[in-house]
Every structure is written in C-alpha cells, then in structure tokens.
Design a protein around this nucleic acid. Structure first.
Lengths: 157, 157
DNA sequence: TGACCAAATGCAAGTTTGTTTCGCGGAACA
DNA sequence: TGTTCCGCGAAACAAACTTGCATTTGGTCA
C-alpha cells in the first residue's frame, strides 16, 4: 500500500497545524473550505500514517534555566559501524543533546546542545568526548543569537 | 515584574506537554497530583509569560517531499552590524532555512536547511551565498541520519 | 501568637471543542 | 446503466476546556 498522497487540503491543514496545532478544527475548516469532521479525518489519517510525527509544546529554554545553545562538530577516530552506532546511542540518550545528526563531510556528527552555563558544557564535553576513546576531535560554536528556530518544513503550494 | 518562577508542578507539566501537548488536562492532573483547572491555569500562565513559546505539530519532512537536511557553516566577508542584520533577515525569510544561528568561532552563521533534492540545494546556495557579495565561504554537511531531532529542553527535577 | 491578605486550589456548572454516526452524492469501472 | 467505493456534510454525542465561587494555604505584620 503506497502511503496515500497528500492533496492540497492536507497541505493547507499541515501549514496551519505547523504554526499552531491548537487551532480549532472549525476554524481550520473555514480556512480551507472543508467541514470540521473532514478536517478531523484528515488530521487523524496524517497522524496514523506518520505525516504528523507528534504534537508538542515548544518551551522557551531561557525560561527554564538553559539559555545556552552550542553546536559541536564531532569527528571520530574510527568509523566502524558498531562504533558509529554506539555514538548515536550515547548522543540520543543524553538529554542536553537536543539534536544529533550523522553527516557527510569533514565531520561525522553535528550536535546541538542546550545547557545552563559554560561550566555545564565543559562537564558535558568531558563526559561525551574526552572519556570516549573514539573521538578524534571536536569543534565548538556557541550561539550568540538563535535567529530562527523551529522544525517547520516548507510546504508546496 | 520578575518572571514568576516555575515550581515543580510547572516543570512536571512542561515535561508532559513537551512530549505531547494534547494530553488531556485531566490526565496531566493525575500525573502531577493537581486538579484539571489548576493545570489549565498554570498552562495558561506559562503561555502568557512566554515559557511555552508555541504549540505545534511536527511534520515528517520526508512525507512532504523534503527528505534532505543540510548544515551550512557560513563565514562572512564583513562583520559590520548592518551586514550581519541583513544576513539574519535574509536567512529568516527563506523558508528552506529551518534554523539559523549566529555563532562565535570559525563561522558566523550555522544554518539547517530542508530541501527536496540536491538540485534544490544547489539553487539555494546560488541565491543565498554566491549572489551575496558578503559571503566569504561556506561549508556544507549533508545529513545521512537524523539521529535525534526536536526542540525538547532538558528540565530539572 | 494571632489576624489579615494574597495567591492557588478543588468542585461544579456551563461552554466549547472533538468525535462518531449516518445518509448522500460524485468518480471509477464493468 | 448499474454498482462500488470514497469522501463529504449535518446532526447527535462524548470529551475536554473554561469559569465562578467557596475554601485552603502560606506568608506578613502588628
């Protein structure tokens, strides 16, 4: 069964939910010219097929005492599959690692880290990088301005 | 007016909403030992004070034809304030630029870009970097695996 | 210590929103 | 032309959210 394609109604609904997923279905319906139940069915289907991965509240990190965002490019010593997987697992399990990508190019991983202060970051580098004997080197970038943040995907239409 | 501090109830509520912001307030109340209206009032307050920045649906980018994620480190020619601001503005306005950070270190900006294919990325580089006469150089990393993605903030407690 | 005030709570009623059911109509197909 | 299959809208229904109010809690000051 091919994942049922999305039509323009679905895309229009997604565009709204991506901005505010608590918009009442009635209003969504008015915006896209559909009845509320029709909107509801489409949302449900997109949730079940994984088009909508989740519904979450975005927390302002400064308000919960984690104002600092840091990027790290990590380069490993060995790229043996099992070591890569071990690294993925460790990064995934670390709460301060907000995002982790395995990439091509001059680095192997790119991490986005959220911490309270530089001391916390320093402690984290020890745990994640120095205590690992598979990290060749890492480069740190400290965010001065989170110019644009989100997981919004550009939608056709 | 100092931003009213968050107590353990608030943090517990945030932890839940960060995972699923459509959890019924009744269930949140049971989880944190509070009545539903109390939960509702706390959520409302955190929304008004900006602790909760927004409520959004997370869209699976592959499902909407944008399967490729790319990192770019951008280094500018000049760091004059007004040129920095112009760059911030342009990156912010570009839908394919999902995230943009102004950073310290060997680069000035780090971008996370979402595109349909490498052709789209190539076109975007032309528009964003080559057509700009203030970009000294940029380095590209293509994500092979989005190991961990989200905007979840680690919460104390 | 004791009285007062502010803030937050729980309960219950009222309102909005979300969900299911049902019958209808159009498109694809034989 | 008749049949089947989907998806729609209207209405009924269920669930969640919201508000008002009396009460409790915690802290301050005489």
């Amino acid at each position: 069964m091919p994942p049922s394609p999305l039509d323009n109604f679905d895309l229009a609904i997604l565009a709204i939910l991506q901005r505010d997923n608590r918009t009442p279905q009635r209003l969504i319906g008015e915006a896209v010219n559909l009845s509320a139940p029709a909107v509801q069915r489409r949302i449900k289907r997109m949730e079940q097929t994984g088009v909508i991965a989740s519904n979450v509240a975005i927390v302002e990190q400064a308000a919960v005492g984690q104002p600092i965002t840091i990027f790290v490019e990590v380069e490993l010593e060995s790229e043996r599959t099992e070591l890569i997987d071990a690294a993925k697992r460790q990064f995934s399990e670390t709460p301060e690692v907000q995002q982790c990508y395995y990439v091509t190019g001059e680095a192997d991983f790119i991490l986005i880290i959220t911490v309270a202060d530089m001391g916390a970051y320093e402690a984290l580098t020890r745990k994640l990088f120095f205590d690992s004997n598979n990290v060749r080197k890492f480069r740190t970038f400290v965010a001065m301005d989170r110019v644009k943040v989100g997981l919004t995907v550009p939608l056709p239409g």
